[in-house]
């Protein structure tokens, strides 16, 4: 069981690392949203499930309630993260920021 917890925890930290590096490396803010919104959500999912598995090891009602709360946080994050991502994207579109494309910076999608 401990091995599963460690694997999940390291997987989550790996995704967090990827998200942070992606925020630095990608060329414009539309592309930066991809690692920021999604890889962080995956990292949260993995680390939180690792922690709730670890808590559930000595099984009482109290630890069960705490683990359920952690699962509910994950569900909440999965419900709200698309909305937050779309809100940031919408703010950028309404402000008239041009998306970075390979051909040249200033051609919007047809």
């Amino acid at each position: 069981m401990n091995i599963l917890v460690i694997l999940l925890l390291f997987g989550g930290l790996f995704f967090f690392t990827g998200g942070s590096i992606g925020i630095l490396r990608f060329p414009d803010f539309y592309t930066r949203l991809h690692p920021a919104g999604k890889l962080d959500t995956a990292g949260q999912f993995l680390t939180m499930s690792a922690i709730s598995l670890y808590i559930m090891q000595d099984f009482t009602l109290h630890t069960f309630l705490t683990a359920t709360k952690i699962v509910l946080i994950v569900i909440f994050v999965y419900l709200t993260s698309p909305t937050a991502t779309h809100a940031i994207m919408d703010a950028g579109v309404r402000a008239g920021l041009k998306p970075w494309t390979k051909a040249g910076r200033h051609d919007l999608a047809d």
Binding site: G18, I21, R25
Partner: peptide
């Protein structure tokens, strides 16, 4: 996306549109 982020020649692989 992890593969894209950690790839050294990331700018040639991505094609945002």
């Amino acid at each position: 996306v992890m593969y894209l982020v950690l790839h050294p020649r990331m700018m040639e692989l991505i094609n945002p549109k």
